Every structure is written in structure tokens, then in C-alpha cells.
Computed example of a mutant assay.
Amino acid sequence: MINNKTKKSLTRIGIVIALIGTKLKLLLPLLKAAKFLSFLSMILYLFVYGFTFGWYFAFALVYLLICHEGGHLIAAKQKGLPTSPAFFIPFVGAVISLKEMPKDAVTESYVAFGGPFLGLISVLPAIPLYHYTHNEFFGLVIALGCILNLFNLIPISPLDGGRILSVLPPIFWFIGIMMMLVFLFYQPSFLAFYIIILGITTFIKRIREAYQLKVIKEKIKLYEHTIKQFQFGIFNVYSDRTIVKRFFFPFFEDNKKLELEIHKERLEINYLIRSVRARLHEPDLDWRIYIDEKIQEIKHKRISPLLKQQETLETYYVSSNRKKWQIFIAYIILASSLALLGFWSYGLIEHVLGR
């Protein structure tokens, strides 16, 4: 028999695993599971947690995960985004994947908000049930539900909180990174460390968008210049001089890094120009048609993807101030509700474990 002290320790470990596990899906390739396979994975998940941490904990966790991921699925469906079924992985969490990425940060925020919002709704029926029955299962649902969903609201990408606030300035992601560092200090975990690394990477990428946009625009100019050369029958190559590859300090050496990026693209263009020149003297080649085909190839394969990247960087995070305030206020209300309810219900875990 497992004594109360051991049971308490195991359940606390289980809560930490569940907290991190809800987002460990970011470590894995997106899974496409059939509905029947999804159901089998849920049963396996239930049995693994049942034998490891107890059946109350297992049923409560599965119920909360179904509601949380179901919130994402409903929100994605409302926005017309196709998704895969939820797939349960023991000691990891529930995994769903979007088959189509959101078109803007507002849509991303809406889909992310659906998870913890329905997570809060799923906890509410347990409050009167626990009040009238004093059944420890309902107490565990309340406390664990608040902890899991509140954890997911930490404003660090890739957690739900970070995606909800993605439409706001990236300073909120920095705050989230600091919060996760505090969590890591009190609950050391490789997975928490990994989430922090992902958060820092995403934060840096976000604040470096201006530089990325500059690189894309310069590349587009290069290819547009190449098209003009082809139209006038000019096939001169760029200099093949070698530029030493090294680490460039962000912001301080952006111009040097940009020079290297453009040089790499020029080498690609040189290869294209040489391949074109090699065919121009073929006797049976209509070089005008051939050049037109190459120009269309440059437009579709080189310029078009760059234009899409440029449009994404310029418009993805653009939103009205009214919409930003609505998202921020909704986030604060949801987080505050979960925090207050969690503060009241946390003692229920101790009550459950003490029995």
C-alpha cells in the first residue's frame, strides 16, 4: 500500500508532468490520427495515469484535457481551420494539429483562447457538485483544472498565453519568459527549460522581423534586376568573391550580416545565369521563348514565395487598437478567474491527498 505521504508526492509529480505535458506536443511532429486511434490513445492514457497516480487523478486529468483541447478544436472550426483529432500520449498530454495555419495573429489568439476558456467552463459544474457531495473527485477537478489552464496562460510562446497575446507587443512574451524562469527555479524540469528556449527563440524572431523584412526586400530587388537583365539579353554574373561566414551580433552587425545574405543569393543567381548562357547557342533553341520561360520561373519560384513572406511579416500582427484591448481584457479576465478559483480550490488537493 502507498501511504499518504508517498501518494502526495506522486500526485504533485503528476501535476508537474501534466503542466509541462500539455505542451510537449511542440517537441513532436504534428500527428494525424484517426478518430478510433484517438479514442484508443485516450484509453491507454487513462490506464497509465490510473495505475501511476490513482484513478481519481487519471479521470480528472483526461476530462480536463478533453475539454481544453476541445476548446481549441471548436475555436479552430469556427474560424474555418481544419484540425486533426486529439491524440493522447502518456506523460505528454493531448496533441492536436492545425492542418492550415491562421491567417493573422487575431485568429491565432482566438484559437488559443478557446482551450483555457473551455477549460474554465469545464471546472464550473464541479463547484456545486463538490459543495453538495464533498466528493474528492470533484475537488480534484476544480483544483487541477485551474492549475493546468492557468499554467497554459503564461504569456510565453508556445503556450496558449503567448499565442493569445501574440497580437500585442512582444514585451509580454519577455514577461512570460521571466515567469517561466521562476517556475523552472521552483520546479526544475528539462521540459520547462525547453519551453523557455522555444520562448526565447520565438521572442528573438519576433523582434528581428524588421531585419528579416529588409533581407526579403533586398532579395526581391535582386531577382527583379535579374529579370530586367534577361529581358535586355544581358547575362553578366555577380562577383564570386568569398565572404567569411561567422557569427554577427544582432542589431550591431546587421549590415554585415545582410551583405552575407545577399551574397549567398547572388551566388544562386550566378548559377541560374550560367545555366541560361550555356543553352543560348543551341541551334534549335528559340531563345526568346526560353528566356520568357526562365523569367516566369523566377517570378513563380523565387519572387512569389518572398512576396508571401513579406506580406506575412507586414500584416500578420497588424490589428486595430480596439481589437488589441479586447484581447488583453479577455485574457486578464480569464487569467484572474482561474487564479481566484485556483487560490480557493488549491486546498482541496491537500484535502483529497490527506484522506
Rank of each mutant, 00 (worst) to 15 (best):
L120G: 07
R12P: 01
E293P: 00
K264M: 15
E218M: 10
F190G: 06
N149I: 09
H225T: 13
F248S: 04
E265S: 12
N270L: 13
K103G: 03
R241A: 15
L198Q: 15
I196P: 04
I147N: 00
H72T: 08
L140D: 10
A335F: 09
N149P: 06
S122L: 12
L37M: 08
Q78N: 03
L140N: 07
P305N: 14
T202D: 11
I327Q: 08
R279D: 04
K308S: 13
H263Q: 15
T201R: 10
D240A: 09
F174G: 10
K35I: 13
V106K: 14
I269A: 15
A76F: 00
F232V: 02
I164Q: 03
L46P: 01
G70F: 11
D160Y: 06
L81D: 01
G21E: 01
A94W: 03
I171L: 03
Y110G: 06
K294N: 15
R277C: 12
Q296Y: 06
F185S: 15
F249N: 07
A34M: 03
N149C: 05
Q187C: 06
E69T: 09
I164G: 02
V352K: 12
F59E: 10
L124K: 05
I197N: 02
Y110R: 14
I17T: 14
G80I: 00
L26P: 00
Q187F: 15
L306F: 03
P188I: 07
T226D: 08
T52A: 09
T201Q: 12
Q310Y: 10
S41D: 06
V276L: 11
F172S: 05
D104T: 13
I2Q: 15
I17Y: 06
I298H: 09
Y317D: 07
P90W: 03
L28H: 08
W325H: 10
I66R: 00
S166P: 03
M178T: 07
N3D: 15
G233M: 08
S166N: 11
I220C: 13
L338T: 01
L65Y: 09
E218Q: 15
V92E: 03
L348I: 13
C67D: 00
V141D: 15
I329H: 04
S157N: 05
R322H: 06
I273S: 01
S84I: 00
I269F: 12
K245R: 13
F91S: 04
T201F: 04
I333V: 15
E218F: 10
